[in-house]
């Protein structure tokens, strides 16, 4: 109730995560029937295979994806699972791990309700906690991008796109989106980005300007768009020649930050 009243999305997420972890720790020790019971509370299509069939669980792929698609480990990718007629095979601990995600979202949703009145004494505490939270959040540093553009620190995928465009080569829609969002996010001026596209034979100033400025957040919804993450770039065939640094990051911007840190040793 107090977390709800403080009404801070970061705090809500942390609290939901903590509760979900507590529940999943407890579920790991429980008999399979309990896991099934709780999963069914969330309308999961889950069943337990007989001992002859290995005693594992099967779960409908929709329930699996809803909870597993944010995981990054290869064993959580659907393509690496056994899936038969819509059912994914799972161990108990895997089922519990997915339930943890479901519980987390369930709690986050419950925390959205602020439709209640707190007694004064508690309201005062909530205000106090709010102030404390503000102080702590101020300490969480956000990483700033340096102002100069360092092409050598581009990840291989963006470098390939950048080389292609400067050489006047055609890029796919996804390629343009990736390159533009990347350059805008590392601090390149919208005008400079537009100029990059100028060498293309099908260059259309009005259209390019509109799209680049939209991505930069100067138009429309005013949100500044971030580049797609590595996983998405792989799906659409943009990811090429991944190197060692790529193995440690999941987002092209992280690659850039990391590379800058390692290559830009103080020069003087």
């Amino acid at each position: 109730m107090m977390v709800s009243a403080i009404d801070d999305s970061y705090l809500k997420k942390r609290y939901a995560l903590l509760e979900a972890k507590r529940i999943s720790d407890f579920l790991k020790e429980e008999p399979p029937e309990t896991v099934i019971k709780i999963a069914k509370f969330f309308n999961w299509k889950i069943r337990r295979l007989s001992i002859q069939e290995g005693g594992k669980f099967t779960l409908h792929f929709a329930d699996f994806l809803r909870n597993a698609s944010i995981f990054h480990e290869k064993e959580w990718k659907l393509v690496n699972r056994q899936i038969v007629k819509g059912e994914v095979t799972l161990t108990q601990s895997e089922a519990v791990r997915l339930l943890e995600e479901e519980v987390k979202r369930h709690i986050e949703k419950r925390l959205q309700t602020t439709d209640f009145k707190l007694p004064e004494t508690i309201a005062a505490r909530v205000d106090h906690l709010k102030q404390l939270l503000m102080l702590r959040k101020g300490e969480l540093k956000t990483e700033e991008m340096p102002k100069t553009i360092v092409v050598d620190a581009f990840p291989p995928c963006v470098k390939a796109l950048y080389t292609a465009i400067t050489g006047g080569h055609h890029l796919s829609h996804m390629g343009r989106l990736t390159l533009t969002t990347f350059l805008i996010n590392i601090g390149m001026d919208a005008e400079d980005v537009i100029n990059l596209y100028r060498s293309l034979s099908d260059f259309n100033e009005r259209l390019t300007r509109y799209q680049v400025e939209h991505i930069a957040g100067a138009r429309g919804s005013r949100t500044k768009y971030r580049p797609p993450k590595c996983d998405t770039l792989r799906t659409h065939g943009i990811c090429i020649n991944p190197d060692e640094t790529c193995e440690r990051i999941r987002h092209p911007l992280k690659y850039y930050q990391r590379k800058l840190r390692t290559t830009q040793k103080p020069s003087s």
Binding site: A62, L65, R66, A68, S69, I70, K74, E75, K77, L78, V79, N80, D231, T232, R234, T235
Partner: peptide, 17 residues
């Protein structure tokens, strides 16, 4: 989109280990 992407990766065999 994330769920659909997983389905695409399955059909295309992307990220297959």
């Amino acid at each position: 989109q994330a769920a659909r992407k997983e389905i695409v990766d399955y059909i295309v065999g992307t990220g297959l280990d």
